[in-house]
Design a protein around this nucleic acid. Structure first.
Lengths: 191, 191
DNA sequence: CGCATTTCTTGCCTTTTGTCAAGTGGAATT
DNA sequence: AATTCCACTTGACAAAAGGCAAGAAATGCG
């Protein structure tokens, strides 16, 4: 739990008392490797802080292929923000790729926090704007970079990912096939 | 101004009095065709409601090519949300593609509204979640659809766009070159 | 350990998209 | 009316990425 408190304070500097109050409603939940935190069709009702472990979110395209939409690693939040805030059924699955320890905050508890703690409103706004920013950066990289540049960028920013998750998931996250990713890797070794 | 009030009430049902108070701080601003509402390097300080006209946002990639990141049309808001809320320099330009009539809300006035009107907080949260949702949908379409499918989708959802803006901007918005877009159009006529 | 499953790589070939340059047509400008 | 500019199209070729299938390597499991 200290880890979560530290994380919150790093996003939004707060007194220890405030920070503790802010995270008080989070409850510990563990997930086994390959289990699901969320399934398509459900309304995402929980906002998870990942203490240990790694997860991915994915959806299916029209031909039935899995498309990895996000990875979530330690010290970050996992959720389908859209389903969570708009209270609508998710189109995604969130799956644990390893055993995970998390802290879970329900939608109702988040609303309570919003009402009782002005700081939490600020925290919430910061987090969603940050998520928007991340998504925008990724969108831009899809529009203006080649697959090779996107691969190089991800390798640079998240080298750990390549040690933790199967390449085929990374490939679909980058918007390419696993064959193409394999070839890009081969080509980049030569350089 | 009635148009803006109607728009607000459609996003968030409110009494006429509340809605009027909510939009009271917006000020009318007009832009000539080809003028800029925002330039890269500036901190986006205004949130614009577009009453009439059409605009685009664009950035430059590493080779110096323009990449259109968004279109804004009548009855919607134009802004660089990231720069606006994070108070950091924008990397984008927002340009009027036609003469535009807008209602402008400054960052400070928005903060005032946040403090004095709880409904406005709700409105703000709804709008940013909606923007996040749009961006996510577009991201997904980049990951899982072919250029041809993206073109067909945009044509279906925003047919007006093709009558109002040069195809080259639409091409870079779709993540393809104008040559490719021209060929896709030719091919889709045959069907 | 040995077998089964999954992950990853690779070759061959096709499809998609890009690049470059030329050319057309229309709108704006002088 | 002539000129310039811009948007769009098109052809020829090149590069990037995908589809499919075979096989190698790694992993999981009884």
């Amino acid at each position: 739990m200290e880890q979560l408190i530290r994380y919150v304070q790093q996003v939004l500097p707060l007194s220890p008392a405030k920070a503790t109050a802010l995270v008080a409603r989070f409850k510990p939940v563990v997930f086994e490797k390959n289990s699901y935190l969320l399934q398509a069709g459900q309304i995402c009702n929980t906002y998870y802080f990942i203490e240990t472990g790694i997860l991915r979110a994915y959806a299916y395209d029209l031909e039935g292929n899995e498309v990895t939409t996000a990875f979530f690693s330690e010290n970050s939040f996992a959720s389908d923000l859209l389903s969570f805030f708009q209270r609508e059924p998710s189109r995604e699955y969130i799956q644990a790729l390893s055993d995970c320890r998390t802290w879970a905050l329900s939608y109702d508890d988040m609303q309570e926090n919003f009402h009782s703690l002005p700081e939490f409103r600020e925290f919430g706004r910061l987090k969603i704007v940050a998520s928007y920013g991340q998504l925008k950066g990724r969108m831009l990289s899809m529009l203006q970079e080649t697959a090779e540049e996107r691969y190089a960028g991800l390798l640079k920013n998240s080298p750990g990912l390549f040690r933790q998750v199967p390449l085929k998931y990374i490939a679909s996250y980058l918007g390419i096939t696993d064959s193409t990713l394999s070839r890009l890797r081969k080509a980049s070794v030569k350089k």
